[in-house]
Design a protein around this nucleic acid. Structure first.
Lengths: 96, 96
DNA sequence: GTGGTATTTAGAAATTTATCTAAATATCTA
DNA sequence: TAGATATTTAGATAAATTTCTAAATACCAC
């Protein structure tokens, strides 16, 4: 884990698009690939980065590998951003 | 604007560290630089990326340029993530 | 086991990014 | 205006990233 890996994973448009696809339902690598104009190898590369970042996990079934969004890591990122936003002087939590 | 630029800006550790510094108070480019082991030119490069992403804005005063966190863009990113998280089947908002 | 489909891995090329040094701007103060 | 300080811009380089093709692996069905 680590925010560096997670934010890097989120920094690529193709990877964010993959996550948006997965927010509806889990999809196999091949199904994901059908939505993009990239080779399967490139999709696999992006999936590996999302996986390392913890943003998706995989479920192996029959001859397929299904990818699913991991919302808990999305929440961790939101918490980091929330802390960033909330930490200023004059912020709500700082009022005496 | 655009999420691509914003997430790219957030993907670098130095830039996130700069944002964390700025969550307490605005700082000049030089003050920011004092916290890092990088040349002023490199700091300036990172600040320009944060600025383009809308994550900070600058205030020119006297001989200094002060940088301040723009929380509204941080909020937009949080909303994007919130939508990602909330959009799944079986999510709270989808229950019938 | 053989053949077929799904996915990943390896290696290479093109692009982008992060960083530095040196030079250019901008603005203050005397 | 001249000198000093703050910051940015330009140009170069090294490292990281994205993408491809081709080959390898994994797994299923027959």
């Amino acid at each position: 884990m680590g925010f560096a890996e997670t934010f890097k994973a989120l920094s690529d448009t193709a990877r964010r698009d993959i996550l948006v696809l997965l927010k509806q339902e889990r999809l196999s690598a091949g199904e994901i690939g059908n939505h993009f104009d990239m080779t399967g190898a490139t999709i696999s590369y992006h999936l590996s980065i999302l996986k390392k970042a913890g943003l998706v996990y995989e479920q192996r079934e029959k001859n397929f590998i299904y990818y699913e969004l991991n919302t808990s890591v999305v929440e961790e990122v939101m918490l980091w951003l929330s802390d960033l936003k909330g930490g200023q002087k004059n912020g709500k939590m700082e009022e005496k």
